[in-house]
């Protein structure tokens, strides 16, 4: 069992938790994820690591309450326990300090996994700009954390309540597009739209995929994605991939396998 050390409600949909998990905190790196089960009959869901503290042996996760598991997790309080918390899984994000100018683009809850990557790049001396997008200003999480590690920070919201009204790509188009690296993490459609633009300017773009998974160790093959025409497993080959190579259409298809089922399940509650 894994104790919830701290719980912070970031907005109506999104919660942050710091979990005591010594076997995860010992070696985890930005870009890696964990798999948790809230309780005994629970499903296994992957969540990207937002932050970690090796001394305190803790790992921070941020999740959006969208499905049954994340809703149940949201009901847990500080000092409650989570049944299972396994990791770190996946490969650390390919952080290359030769990339002098980096643009991070985070959409919705994807802002959370973007944070440790930008933080590490900033610590390595890179120039880091970020574009953060969400439904409203309130949906843009970690604003203060990002302002500490970003040279320039831009916001895009659906309702215009913070920054520009529109999508992160609207802001992206207005930047100089002279970055050495773009890291885009968010909904698949956002990552696809970002790469559609950056491809034209040939700016290397990494994306982080979060498909349906079970074990997270390569065993089940459920998280397979086509990257560069080859089948890859997001859990052992990723989760970060070259955005130009990812078959987003297939990813979006595969993400919907259980949609119907989940709607039925939640409707019955």
């Amino acid at each position: 069992m894994y104790r919830i050390i701290k719980k912070v409600i970031l907005n109506n949909d999104v919660t942050m938790m710091e979990i005591h998990a010594p076997f995860v905190s010992r070696r985890c790196e930005p870009g890696q994820f964990i798999i948790l089960r809230v309780d005994e009959n629970g499903e296994r869901i992957p969540l990207t690591i937002t932050d970690y503290n090796r001394e305190k042996e803790t790992v921070t996760i941020i999740f959006q309450k969208v499905g049954l598991t994340t809703k149940k997790l949201g009901l847990k309080s500080e000092n409650d326990y989570i049944q299972d918390f396994a990791g770190p899984l996946g490969n650390p994000a390919p952080i290359n300090i030769k990339n002098k100018r980096v643009l991070g683009i985070g959409g919705g809850v994807g802002i959370a996994p973007l944070y440790p990557q930008i933080k590490k790049l900033k610590e390595a001396g890179c120039i880091t700009d970020v574009i953060l997008g969400g439904k409203t200003g309130e949906h843009i999480i970690l604003k203060n954390n990002f302002s500490e590690i970003s040279d320039n920070i831009y916001f895009a919201t659906d309702d215009g309540s913070l920054g520009e009204k529109g999508f992160v790509t609207d802001i992206l188009k207005k930047t100089e597009l002279s970055y050495d690296l773009v890291i885009a993490i968010g909904p698949l459609i956002m990552m696809k739209s970002v790469t559609d633009i950056t491809k034209k300017y040939n700016i290397k773009t990494n994306v982080s995929l979060n498909p349906i998974m079970i074990d997270g160790t390569g065993m089940c093959g459920g998280c397979r994605v086509t990257v560069g025409g080859k089948t890859k497993f997001a859990c052992v080959d990723g989760p970060d991939f070259d955005g130009f190579e990812v078959d987003f259409k297939e990813c979006m298809e595969r993400q919907t396998v259980y949609d119907e089922k989940h709607i039925c399940f939640m409707g019955a509650k």
Binding site: F23, D84, F85, P88, T217
Partner: peptide, 15 residues
């Protein structure tokens, strides 16, 4: 038996 530990990720053989 310790569950939820992925050797190679959580710890290495050297660890």
């Amino acid at each position: 038996i310790i569950t939820n530990v992925i050797i190679g990720k959580s710890m290495t053989i050297d660890d």
